[in-house]
Design a protein around this nucleic acid. Structure first.
Lengths: 112, 112
DNA sequence: CCATTATATAACCAAATGGTTATAGAAAAA
DNA sequence: TTTTTCTATAACCATTTGGTTATATAATGG
């Protein structure tokens, strides 16, 4: 068994494991572009707290930051979202395969 | 904007944000059933550490535990994997929609 | 220039995380 | 029954996390 060590997925899943950050991702998914201020506004947290959340999302590669003057515009990076999704898909597929094998095994055993 | 507060997703993504736990999930996806001992063996951690990882996966609903005598057999819970995958898919779809809208907007603006 | 606005950074704190060793409990084996 | 084996729990520790307030930096507006 080869053990995978993927710090990119670590960061991605960790970033998504917080409802405030997922809320920010939802805003970006729905509305395309948002500033740091807009992304923090709906949540009952301080401005520095929102800033830190955005840095976590940025370091995970989930969002892309573009500076426009004194405001920072964020957008979603669908590629990173897709990488996490791909991992889950592959594992569900593997699992489905295992279940098929198990079913086949059970059927064979049931034959006797 | 409705802010989502989903502690189930919190637990799911948090459980997946660790390469040891993802490795355990990979083993289960590939091989169907494994005992606690087998799941911990490939990793350079103590038995209690592996036990704790399995409890995190179990509490997240990612694995199902069945006691057989003194051994515990684990299997993957594809439903929870699918819930996380669904969240990612919906957000990618939203994002794709936003991009379409943006493209449409840009095209309209380019008309004049 | 000066004030305001948008965002980040520093310093700090409590709680959670992931690891350890030592121990307990319960089932299997001798 | 006694010993092993499998797994969990307790107690502890260092690091990380997510929050705060206070301050810095940088761009805009008067």
């Amino acid at each position: 068994m080869v053990i995978e060590k993927n710090t990119t997925l670590d960061r991605t899943f960790h970033a998504l494991a917080d409802s405030t950050r997922r809320g920010m991702v939802t805003m970006l998914a729905k509305e395309g572009f948002k500033t740091a201020g807009e992304l923090g506004a709906p949540f009952d947290i301080s401005q520095p707290a929102a800033s830190k959340h955005l840095k976590v999302l940025e370091n995970a590669g989930l969002v892309i930051r573009k500076r426009h003057g004194r405001t920072h515009a964020f957008s979603l990076n669908s590629e990173t979202l897709g990488a996490a999704r791909g991992w889950l898909e592959r594992h569900q597929a593997f699992w489905a395969g295992s279940m098929d094998q198990l079913e086949a095994l059970l059927e064979t055993e049931g034959d006797t």
